[in-house]
């Protein structure tokens, strides 16, 4: 390669490497702020600020959803399977909100550790499948569970 072009190639590579390193370091320094939400375990450890708007995300605990009979008031818990945070919310929930599914709640944490949510978003996972496949999976899971139970007895 011609020496002049070689020099330009080195300059171009340096531009790419150093700018990547600079932005990578910035992203590393700001990593806490880039996260969209706190996982419940960090809230439980007291890492989330009280009295300031934050988001908490995790799975909605099975059986924890309590709806009010005469209003849109709802109470549920989100968990990351290490800790869980109770959330109260008044409003319309997204269609995909359900027990055992992901959710992200935005609001303010009060002194009792309850998130007073002003917005609840549903988070879906990366699995896509037709309903029949989902049913078949459920059925085979139930069968495996029954088999495991039978083998245990």
């Amino acid at each position: 390669m011609h020496p002049v072009r070689k020099q330009r190639l080195i300059i171009v590579l340096c531009v790419v490497v150093f700018s990547s390193a600079a932005i990578g370091l910035m992203a590393y320094a700001l990593r806490g702020n880039i996260n969209l939400f706190f996982p419940p375990v960090e809230v439980a450890a007291g890492k989330a600020p009280v009295g300031q708007p934050i988001r908490v995300g995790g799975m909605v605990v099975d059986g924890s959803v309590q709806r009010s009979d005469n209003s849109l008031h709802i109470r549920f818990e989100v968990t990351d399977y290490q800790a869980s945070v109770p959330v109260v919310y008044e409003g319309i929930l997204p269609d995909l909100f359900d027990e055992g599914q992901g959710a992200v709640a935005a609001g303010v944490l009060d002194e009792n550790g309850v998130l007073q949510a002003t917005e609840v978003l549903a988070k879906h996972d990366e699995n896509y499948m037709p309903p029949e496949v989902a049913e078949a999976l459920e059925a085979s899971k139930a069968m495996d569970a029954a088999k495991a139970k039978g083998a245990g007895e």
């Binding site: 929930l93 997204p94 269609d95 995909l96 917005e119």
Partner: peptide, 12 residues
Amino acid sequence: KPTWGTWWVWDA
């Protein structure tokens, strides 16, 4: 909007 419940969120 129909899945998450919002048009826009400042996620990464």
